[in-house]
Design a binder for these strands. Sequence first.
DNA 1: CTAATACGCTAACGATCATTAGCCATATTA
DNA 2: TAATATGGCTAATGATCGTTAGCGTATTAG
Lengths: 193, 193
Amino acid sequence: MSTKERILDAALTLFAENGYDGTSVEQIANIVGIKAPSLYKHYKGKEDILNALIDSAEVRYEELFGSENKIGKLPQNREEFIKVTMEKLSFTMTDPVIRKTRMFLIQEQFRNERISEVTTRHQLDGIQRMYANILEGMMNEGIVAEDDPAMLAVELTAPVVLLIARADRQPQYRKEIMESIEKHIQHFCSVYM
Amino acid sequence: MSTKERILDAALTLFAENGYDGTSVEQIANIVGIKAPSLYKHYKGKEDILNALIDSAEVRYEELFGSENKIGKLPQNREEFIKVTMEKLSFTMTDPVIRKTRMFLIQEQFRNERISEVTTRHQLDGIQRMYANILEGMMNEGIVAEDDPAMLAVELTAPVVLLIARADRQPQYRKEIMESIEKHIQHFCSVYM
DNA sequence: CTAATACGCTAACGATCATTAGCCATATTA
DNA sequence: TAATATGGCTAATGATCGTTAGCGTATTAG
């Protein structure tokens, strides 16, 4: 990894942990293993690092939820749907970069309009559009009862997003939270499938 | 309002807007109309103000969701339930103190364990326990189909909480978000009532 | 081979931060 | 009425912040 990338990586870790204002340029440099002024050979300043991080958050959002339904082929029944969904969520929940990006965005969401928008996409639009696609496909195949797919996607994803946010906040309850998520998905399926 | 209260009030406004680390003691003093050092006649330091704010957030949580179902008498039908719920949500969404408390907590949720817990109560446990009570009551009276009340409360409140958070982030969409909330509640009722 | 670029370093800058010391006027209490 | 407490003020402190200047070395380009 290049120094420039390692700076971004360190900044993401620290911003997620302590927020932008709670992180000093020196702390970032420390993790990278250089002195603070050397950092300015790679970025114009602290704000520049912040913007680069938002850029990479946008890219990651595209990778996760972007353009087409990235879940592979459509689940063919309730059990398969639950299995695939839980796997994807478990990954989202534990992958360090995704997790840090989420924590970083949530803390800085009021800082400027761009972060507000990215946060909304991360927390709402992205996942919901993805599941709206999946559910619509399953409706067409008669696996899911006919309904507004966008609406159903909200009902499915909102509790999950909130519970994942709680796991970020209180990682000591990760196991129980994972069970709550599964319980919710089971309930969702029992109502709509 | 006493100076001590006005300091808390100013701090809440600034912490909600710029976060704890993004707010200086001088800014707080400016709003109150005193000089920064005078502030130390009322609080030991900045951290002390933070703790007092968390205290008052806990009190507010108790007032909003605490002990008993505070929604008054049980709604007797679907229309009444929607009306009462929308009123309560509209208040929660726009009341300045509640809104600022929410924004403050969300930004500082990773700062320490106490804030983590209060945030969880504010965002999850509080509202959900309240609606679990209401829904259970309505089940007993045969208005709502028999089900796990806690589960149903999650399905009802999670999308609402997420959408309110979005309204905090992007107030320019408040109207559309309010409509989304109503649409979701209608959908919820059409499924379970 | 030489010039230029990239990237590390130290030293130092001014700005801002939270906080303390100490002074003074007013209000409260003994 | 005297003593004390309250709550404002100015001045100043040391710490930390982000950032710049400028130097040296190694790599790259012409």
